[in-house]
């Protein structure tokens, strides 16, 4: 199994032989990955290699065809309804596009999981939301605005605030720096590191951005053609000895990864 720790009790999430196809198109062809408890794992890989699908399978947003997904040692593939809702309370997620609810104010977005998932009163949720806004470097006045009134970087910060508001045990980051300028990307990376450390959460991120990888990762896994082809500490990334990893991290057109020319 590709993973950072072999003892299953040390791992928060364990994926074994995870497969998912859309029609005849096999996206995941047996993903094996272990995410150590309290650590930050970053999955890298080219577009269309199955990074987002892997995250969505763990969250139950997509149903995997076969394999196993264990969270805290419990199998979660078959969970539905109230059991799935209960499991989701462990998770926070920062979506690539923010996925903020346009019809709700910023504080209602951040407090959404608290109000509806944890039955916190609206007044208390608003106070927590403002506190989280300050944690991600935004002023309390932003709380009364709507998502459409914010810039892309501010929306990402709000999305991060929403992801951490419920104090989740596991946080997923789906391409957290995509579409941001380098400075804002670095700000978001620092916020991610700070928030994950404050919460003591386990983080699983997917990104193409190597600067982001080096900043937020404790461990890195590379996915290619639906399989994990390398996994190890971020310190070993530059001496992985894997030609696919080398090509990807250096952004070279020449190398064993050739599917970028398939269209």
């Amino acid at each position: 199994m590709s993973g950072a720790a072999n003892d299953s009790s040390d791992n928060k999430i364990v994926l074994s032989g995870l497969c998912k196809a859309f029609g005849k198109n096999e996206i995941l062809r047996g993903i094996d990955l272990a995410v150590p408890r309290g650590k930050s794992m970053v999955v890298i890989g080219g577009s269309g290699t199955g990074k987002s699908v892997t995250l969505k399978c763990i969250l139950g947003l997509l149903e995997a065809d076969s394999g196993s997904i264990q969270v805290d040692g419990h199998e979660t593939m078959a969970l539905k309804g109230a059991d799935r809702d209960e499991l989701m309370k462990k998770f926070g997620m920062l979506f690539q596009g923010g996925a903020l609810f346009d019809s709700l104010k910023i504080w209602e977005n951040i407090g959404f999981g608290l109000i509806h998932g944890q039955k916190v009163s609206k007044k208390q949720a608003r106070e927590i939301a403002i506190e989280k806004l300050q944690d991600v470097g935004l002023k309390p006045e932003v709380a009364e605005l709507f998502p459409a009134e914010l810039s892309g970087g501010m929306q990402k910060r709000v999305s991060l605030a929403r992801a951490i508001a419920t104090k989740p045990e596991i946080i997923f980051f789906d391409e957290p720096t995509t579409g941001l300028d380098p400075i804002m990307a670095d700000v978001i990376n620092e916020l991610i590191v700070k928030c994950v450390k404050q919460l003591g959460a386990t983080a699983l991120s997917i990104t193409h951005d190597m600067a982001s990888v080096r900043k937020i990762a404790d461990y890195v896994a590379m996915i290619h053609e639906g399989r994990i082809i390398w996994c190890g500490p971020v310190a070993d990334l530059d001496r992985s000895g894997n030609p696919y990893v080398d090509q990807f991290i250096h952004g070279r057109a020449d190398g064993p990864i050739t599917n970028h020319t398939r269209f």
Partner: peptide, 15 residues
């Protein structure tokens, strides 16, 4: 909401 992943976000917030 589907296209912008807001429905997925609802699920991740246990709703």
């Amino acid at each position: 909401m589907r296209v912008t992943e807001q429905i997925d976000a609802l699920r991740t917030l246990s709703v």
